[in-house]
């Protein structure tokens, strides 16, 4: 039984923590933008892709310069730089595309449509510059596999995960902690929460709302670059990398309650787990119990066939929207 549980851990828990970290980090960005600017920012997935490509270019640059840290994938070393660059670009995108519309007091729908336009522009530019093929951070470096033996009798399997997965989780913990401290301890972070809570009152209180908007874009851009690079490190780098994943991220933001960063983090992991668990073959866990089960365990029991993995998030998204649009963790938001 232990062997089967380890198999479950490797295939479901590890995968869902890795995927969940990506959803959580990106979902926080979506939810902050919604909280402060009150619109669904569809171009978030492309900010992720852009960040990942910037990291990729930087990694190549570091490799040619011979800069590296032994034992650490270059992708992680360049990530902070990519985050800074993407934050600057996110800030620029706001200035160029969203700020003029806000000034005109355009509706949230207009901003949403504009974000579709930004999606297309960024996506087009990425493909124009990088082509439409796939690339990997691990063409020259190797992705290390970490195996931890379990010191129990009769256990043959080891707990497996890759080094990038471990680093991803660590970085997510760091990012979430920093974000938490920022939101609860710093004046600007509190002002951000205040504006998400009640934008009119924030303005009336004399809070510099333009500054808060700027900081929001910078944080969202940096987190998007982080999530995108992590995704590229875990899977591979493609121009439509994040376009496919933007809906699960919206699902995380909505399930967590739009405007609620902590909800988005929890929901990110929840959706990551749901996706991994839905395609897991539960027969593996049932088979050792065959002796006490009244029926014969089939070869394969999955909630959905593997090819429907992403669909799980869409279904969760639609169900939550219909059942409780304000999110399942906390009520009232907007």
């Amino acid at each position: 039984m232990m062997n089967e549980l380890i198999f479950f851990f490797n295939n479901v828990v590890v995968a869902s923590i890795a995927l969940g970290s990506i959803y959580a980090v990106a979902g926080v960005g979506v939810t902050l933008i919604f909280g402060i600017l009150r619109f669904a920012h569809f171009a978030h997935g492309d900010m992720m892709t852009m960040g990942a490509f910037l990291a990729f270019v930087l990694a190549g640059l570091f490799a040619t310069l011979g800069w590296s840290v032994p034992g650490l994938p270059t992708g992680f070393i360049v990530m902070p730089i990519a985050m800074v660059l993407t934050a600057i670009i996110a800030f620029g995108l706001d200035k160029a595309f969203y700020a003029p519309l806000r000034k005109r007091k355009a509706s949230s729908v207009t901003l949403l449509i504009a974000s579709i336009g930004v999606t297309l522009i960024v996506q087009g530019l990425i493909r124009l510059i990088f082509g439409s093929g796939a690339a990997s951070f691990f063409e020259t470096e190797t992705k290390q596999l970490i195996r931890i033996p379990v010191p129990l009798e009769g256990v043959t399997r080891t707990i497996n995960f890759t080094q990038p997965q471990l680093l991803m989780v660590l970085m997510t913990i760091v990012a979430v902690t920093v974000l938490h401290l920022f939101l609860t301890r710093s004046r600007l972070g509190k002002a951000m929460r205040a504006m998400a809570d009640n934008a009119d009152l924030a303005q009336v209180s004399g809070i510099n709302t333009k500054l808060v908007v700027r900081v929001t874009w910078i944080i969202a851009g940096a987190l998007a670059a982080m999530a995108g690079t992590m995704l590229a490190l875990d899977v591979q780098l493609k121009p439509d990398l994040a376009f496919n994943i933007v809906l699960p991220i919206f699902a995380a933001a909505i399930v967590g309650g739009l405007g609620q960063p902590y909800g988005a983090i929890a929901a990110g992991y929840l959706i990551g787990f749901a996706e991994s668990a839905a395609i897991f073959n539960w027969s593996v866990l049932l088979r050792p119990l065959q002796g006490i089960l009244p029926f014969e365990v089939p070869v394969s029991i999955t909630f959905v066939p593997t090819e429907y993995k992403l669909t799980v998030a869409f279904v969760i998204l639609v169900v939550v929207l219909l059942w409780r649009p304000t999110g399942i963790f906390k009520g009232a938001s907007s």
Binding site: R187, K190, A191, R193, A194, D197, N198, D200, L201, A202, V204, S205, G206, I207, N208
Partner: peptide
């Protein structure tokens, strides 16, 4: 300073944080 008629507190924030927001400037 101005106190609006409705929605004049940050409901999700603590009383102390509400006061702090008043001192933002």
């Amino acid at each position: 300073s101005f106190v609006p008629q409705e929605k004049n507190v940050f409901t999700s924030m603590s009383v102390e944080e509400n006061l702090e927001m008043g001192a933002f400037t």
